[in-house]
Design a protein around this nucleic acid. Structure first.
Lengths: 149, 149
DNA sequence: ATTGCAAATGATAATCTTTCTCATTAATAC
DNA sequence: GTATTAATGAGAAAGATTATCATTTGCAAT
């Protein structure tokens, strides 16, 4: 039983700051998440976590992403395909959105302050305060203006 | 075995136009959908369909909404809660979007040409043609400026 | 109207993702 | 170090959706 050693990740610190018990498994999952800049689903997260420490079960990964989401550490996303995907929650800077390539399924992030403001406005004019925006656009790559095929 | 009789709905006509076989069940489901201006899930659709003709199975409802979606007759929506919800696809006029009341879960539709245009623009500038927009904003009703509750 | 045939349907099993159960283990305060 | 309380692992259970397969039905040609 060899304990894997690695430094506390930014997310692990956040976990502590929120008063959550920092178990070995949570430390591992936080480490893996801090190390990811994509949008893994639970299955994929589990794969990556097991690489770091095999003594972890998929049930714990499910429990941990839920806990992290409830504490504003993670954001759940739905890009279709039937499974939830996760990414580290935005910090102070504005929200970001996702463009999904219709053919490859690739996810491309983008920000747009004008869009932030417009949505804020629309919602306010309907008498609401904006809580969350769930936006993803599906697009198909344009043929290059003078490509050859 | 009494055959229920009702006129062909606009969606039933659409179904025929697309070259889909117009079975009794599909005619019933199309009728129910044409009659709905909300966003029912499959379970709810099944309930409404059975009212019109009890000789219908939930499997057929699942098959039919999928078929209709693949043929651009229906749009699938995800408002959270684990089940897909459906609505009649937009015609020529612009897309519409959804505001979800954070407290009641109520879904409020809205249109906004400025938003249509901005999204179109953003996507184009990233080198893509816009295929679909999936947008829902979650909001919380503002306290009335001088209410008493 | 009848026939023929591919496609649709009903009933239920299977699948897939996610949550729950409960005995065991581990983190934190003392 | 010990106690206490919460977290974990493994698998069962739940909930939504899709697949299976024998039977039925819509529809085109007769």
């Amino acid at each position: 039983m060899k304990e894997p050693t690695f430094p506390d990740s930014p997310l692990a610190d956040l976990c502590r700051e929120r008063g959550l018990k920092l178990t070995g498994q949570r430390r591992t999952i936080a480490f893996v998440l801090s190390d990811s800049d994509d949008h893994p689903d639970v299955e994929e997260l589990y794969r990556r976590a097991v690489e770091v420490d095999p003594r972890i079960s998929i049930a714990t990964v499910y429990r941990t992403v839920r806990l992290f989401e409830e504490n504003g550490i993670l954001q759940r996303r739905d890009f279709g395909g039937g499974r939830a995907r996760y990414e580290v929650a935005d910090g102070d800077h504005g929200d970001h959105y996702h463009l999904i390539d219709a053919d490859s399924g690739k996810v491309i992030e983008f920000e747009n302050p004008k869009l932030d403001a417009l949505l804020e406005n629309i919602v306010r004019e309907m008498g609401y305060d904006l809580v969350t925006t769930r936006l993803s656009v599906v697009g198909r790559k344009k043929a290059k203006p003078r490509g050859n095929g």
